[in-house]
Design a protein around this nucleic acid. Structure first.
Lengths: 258, 258
DNA sequence: CCATCTTTGTGCACGCGTTCACAAAGACAT
DNA sequence: ATGTCTTTGTGAACGCGTGCACAAAGATGG
């Protein structure tokens, strides 16, 4: 019984570690910003700071893609942007559908970060007949009945689920049956999918709960004996010490492969 | 654990691995569902399936919290719900503020998953004067000018940033200065914070990019034979010139002349 | 052409997280 | 009480990811 086991037997030989893949978009974002400022080249140290990671890690990440740097100089920004984009598959157009046009679905439809990265919202789908035809973010909402046709007509392979938890699995099943092989799930449910289908989930309340855990620990520690170095006071220089600790675990993605 | 022998070094650091903490909300959600169905006990196997994880992992995770199970029977659902809630700090009320009431901020304000987990939206804050006073999700939006006062009056320690990228760092600085020590960041920026402040980030477009990577790999694999390199296929022009060696996807680790 | 300086690319070691496999612990039947 | 059966809790092995430290590679200047 496959409970969404997206177990990948690893990328056979040409394996780019998952952790690296998860950071590539981060580098790409930083590089794009540099590109817009017409910066020609960047060192691993500078780029790492901009992306909020360790420079050694960045260099190792890039080494999986190939030797795209020049020793003594750094990396060519434009070239690297292209290489990473290609590696991530962003040089092609990815039509996506968003299912469940409630508050969150509508926000996602309006989110500009998609279009700017090669993702195109091909359709918005909702189960409420009253929503049908109503435009959201300039796109008319279509009814769930037409889900299969929409997927096929648009060649959609990536679906976003923003429905209530109760409807998620059913929607997921229909998406998969219609040909979708990658799903971004915002519903607070564990989705069950066949092999070959990737699921990533984002659960907003989970993120807050993790923060609450650490928050509680901080609060408890100040009463405990060990005053040590964790007292609030916190040096506010901030900027000085770059490479700031981005969270307790630096990198644990807010999202995990399901 | 039951057999004396408590880790001495773990006493103070409360050693619960980050990976485990990140899964506790998952277990809690599954347990809550069982609780609502009045299921009295559950085995690690069943609960693991419901949470979408491996049963051995679940048992090890719980072992960090203590011995809350009964061998031969399983775990008491209600008791476990309480233990995990307490461990996560959800038995207390956490007032949070949401800064940036655009599409996403409004969706977050309306999101029901917060209140049901002990989080209370204490205030909505936006920089647009036109928004001030306007109710969103039944809560009147307040202006950024009052940010510090709002934080202090409500004893807020958790802040959610849903502003445009350009404003995020500035908002973050003000939140931290006002006393916030945990931040959930939705803006596509690396935030710089002093020690002692936790930041977790959620970037929707990054998730899609990761899916696109795997999607591309799936598409490429079906053309390639069982092994070997991924055939270029260069989906849409953009074929750069430097094709020669590394080209499309060549084997990355070059030969080491040593 | 040689010396020096900068920055990449990576071998290596370490620590965390995952998984296996099994002894210990308790429930339950006889 | 004793034996059997179920399920937990965990020791140990393994694999992945991270960070250090340095040699190789190329730029730059004399």
């Amino acid at each position: 019984m496959a409970t969404g086991r997206t177990h990948r037997p690893a990328t056979r030989s040409r394996g780019i570690p998952e952790a690296t893949v998860a950071r590539l978009p981060l580098y790409l974002r930083a590089l794009t910003a540099l590109s817009e400022r017409s910066v020609p080249t960047v060192s691993s140290e500078e780029l790492a700071a901009a992306a909020g990671v360790n420079s050694a890690k960045l260099r190792k990440d890039f080494s999986y893609l190939g030797s795209y740097g020049t020793r003594g100089v750094g990396y060519d920004v434009e070239y690297l942007v292209y290489q990473i984009s290609r590696e991530l598959g962003l040089t092609q157009d990815w039509p996506v559908v968003i299912v469940g046009i409630g508050n969150l679905g509508a926000a996602l439809a309006n989110y500009g970060g998609f279009a700017s990265r090669g993702f195109r919202v091909a359709a918005l789908i909702d189960a409420d007949p009253a929503m049908a035809g109503k435009p959201v973010a300039g796109i008319p909402v279509q009814h769930t009945d037409d889900l299969e046709k929409i997927i096929k007509d648009n060649g959609v392979s990536i679906g976003v689920i923003a429905t209530p938890a109760g409807a998620a699995q059913q929607v997921c099943d229909r998406l998969v049956a219609a040909g979708v092989t990658s799903i971004l799930n915002f519903a607070p449910t564990v989705l069950s999918v066949p092999d070959g289908v990737d699921v990533r989930k984002v659960d907003l309340s989970i993120e807050l709960q993790i923060l609450a855990f650490h928050e509680q620990r901080k609060a408890g520690e100040e009463t405990a004996a060990g005053d040590g170095a964790l007292t609030a006071a916190a040096p506010r220089g901030a900027a000085a010490d770059h490479s700031a600790d981005q969270g307790p675990d630096g990198d644990v993605p807010a999202v995990m492969p399901a």
